[in-house]
Nucleic acid binder design. Structure first.
Lengths: 171, 171
DNA sequence: GAGAAATGATTAACATGTTAAATTATGGTG
DNA sequence: CACCATAATTTAACATGTTAATCATTTCTC
């Protein structure tokens, strides 16, 4: 690699670009909080051979008989391409089942399998226990309040069309 | 693909696994809120050829003369492997400069280049304007309160050792 | 001071995020 | 009915997330 061992960096360059304190930006706060939460769940999911996203899909499917792929994407908050790949994998592992809507052959319809339900039943207790521990630590009321504020944030931004602020391209 | 066209799914399987309403889980709330926020910034960053993570690194670097790679990872909240790849790319684009700490040849030291500062100066105004718009929409006070609650959540979870809840492996 | 243990960084391997393009199936229109 | 626009899904291509393994250097220890 091109790594100089001397100290010839651009020392003289004026270094200040006026911006908010980086570590306190909203995206960073949200990212750190989410990571702190997920760190609690990942080990258990991993023990059962599941990723966070795969688990989201199983949970979404457990609540219903069957759903179209697009609707599942919306429920699990995954983009189409990610979902496509994950469904391929989950189907190969026989955790879900898939058919085609006879009325519209473009649509795929997905449901959880008996094996998938069995896996869920194995994971759910630990997962619920972790969630309960988090709730206890943070406070149930405070947690509910946080969720409301997050939902409100989503709402606030839902109508913010992009491009409201001008911006040139780079070419 | 193995997609049955008939309707022979596992209809009889008992479908209920007792769990909280999925869409209201804390990780999902945090994910959605963060995505709603990032959706505002991504187009502008993209116009300048930057990803969210690359922008985080430049912002972290703009505040200081130079930092070690590990410290930069902590500041930008990136894992080592991600940071390694991104630094390789940013260095190739001459947006950053890199040397090796003479006192400890294991440590890499990174700083932003003049070109990197120039790019930041081009992106910052739009970025700040978007942030201001978000703040106005959601409310400055409410935003500050949200950040406090997120920080508190991090704090609450910081001492939660994993494995506090038993969990068997799958083999 | 030679060799083991530890540390900083990178690489490897696989899963997902993100945007664009391609595929296949519907539906409308002349 | 041929044609074209649209829609649902997948594939492609590249960037990052995540864990494990590797590599180089340093530090500890005898």
């Amino acid at each position: 690699m091109s790594r100089k061992t001397d100290a010839s960096l651009s020392q003289g360059a004026e270094r200040r670009v006026p911006m908010r304190d980086f570590s306190r930006s909203l995206p960073m706060s949200l990212l750190r909080a989410r990571e702190a939460v997920m760190r609690q769940f990942r080990p258990s999911l991993r023990n059962h051979g599941l990723t966070e996203q795969q688990w989201r899909i199983l949970r979404a499917l457990a609540a219903i008989e069957a759903v179209e792929v697009s609707e599942l994407a919306r429920m699990a908050f995954l983009l189409g391409p990610s979902l496509s790949r994950i469904l391929r994998d989950l189907e190969a592992r026989q955790l879900i089942e898939r058919r085609t809507d006879p009325a519209d052959q473009r649509r795929g319809v997905v449901s959880i399998s008996a094996k998938g339900l069995k896996l869920m039943a194995a994971v759910a207790p630990t997962s619920e226990a972790i969630y309960a521990a988090i709730t206890k630590r943070y406070g149930a009321r405070k947690l509910a309040e946080l969720q409301e504020m997050l939902a409100a944030l989503e709402q606030s931004l839902s109508g913010m069309e992009q491009g409201a602020v001008a911006d040139e391209e780079d070419a």
